[in-house]
């Protein structure tokens, strides 16, 4: 409840490099009990942040992956009619068929409300759903309660979850939605920050490799005409690939050889663009 938000402050986790800005915002959102809306390029660690918060606060993380066809009620609860029908027909289960409550299953938001401890609720990629879903959902999160129509019961949150919402879209969400959230935009990490991030993942990485890989990575990101720029995730995987190749030498990177481009560029036009310009680096 409110008091433990000021006691438990968020300072960072083992696999997530946090800048002070973000830590501050997370803490303010927790104190104000408002959902935190995170926007930013894919691969800037929006989803990872929720995991990190959960880890460092020692809370359970519940993830609601939003899908475009999703209805709000699915996120709240589900009434399993089919099982009930079967039970009433065959009567071989231990459930009491006349008690509808036994056939109500909690959705992700529901789970976060009924949980006995405070949890972190991550609502991932909210922009996929339509505007009605978004607004209705915030109503529920504002009130911290919802009704189960079938059994005429109101579910109230036992503990207010820490809510993190992520959005990839460049398009803005609706005004009422934004009005109820705190907002933060995660910028793509600067090279220095990126080096730290890589070090968190590969604690024993060679400095030469780190510097060259990161600078090559930023050079490739700056290419013109890319549709999807490689992000942190791609860089990490790429370094993993470089390290696992016994024939690879850091010298090659300095010379301008860039193996495993496919790890960085996943769309074929981007791959072609990258390949052409890598050929130019080499010259």
């Amino acid at each position: 409840m409110p008091n433990d938000s000021s006691v438990t402050r968020f300072t960072g986790a083992t696999h997530y490099v946090l800048d002070d800005e973000l830590a501050q915002i997370v803490n303010i959102s927790m104190a104000l009990e408002m959902p935190l809306l995170l926007k930013g390029e894919p691969g800037t660690g929006k989803t990872m942040l929720a995991h990190a918060i959960a880890e460092s606060l020692n809370m359970r993380l519940i993830v609601l992956n939003v899908k475009s066809s999703m209805k709000l009620v699915e996120a709240l609860y589900q009434y399993d009619t089919l099982t009930r029908l079967n039970d009433s027909r065959f009567g071989d289960s231990t459930r009491d068929v006349s008690n509808i409550e036994e056939y109500i299953k909690m959705g992700k938001i529901g789970q976060s409300f009924v949980s006995d401890e405070r949890v972190v609720l991550l609502i991932d990629e909210i922009d996929k759903a339509d505007t009605d879903f978004q607004d209705d959902m915030l109503d529920v999160l504002d009130q911290m309660e919802f009704d189960i129509i079938e059994i005429d019961k109101t579910i109230k949150a036992k503990n207010r979850p820490v809510i993190i919402i992520t959005s990839n879209a460049k398009k803005d969400l609706s005004d009422p939605f934004l009005g109820r959230c705190n907002f933060h935009h995660i910028a793509f990490p600067e090279p220095d920050m990126m080096r730290q991030i890589v070090r968190v993942h590969f604690s024993n990485i060679d400095k030469d490799l780190l510097d060259n890989a990161v600078s090559t990575f930023y050079r490739l990101r700056d290419l013109r005409g890319l549709e999807k720029k490689p992000a942190t995730r791609e860089l990490i995987n790429w370094i993993r690939a470089l390290r696992s190749d016994p024939d690879f030498k850091v010298k090659d990177l300095v010379k301008g050889d860039t193996p495993y481009l496919g790890v960085l560029f996943k769309k074929s036009p981007d791959y072609v663009v990258a390949q052409n310009s890598v050929a130019r680096f080499r010259r």
Partner: peptide, 8 residues
């Protein structure tokens, strides 16, 4: 900023 400004 996080409270007042809602778009980057």
């Amino acid at each position: 900023r996080s409270i007042l400004v809602k778009s980057e």
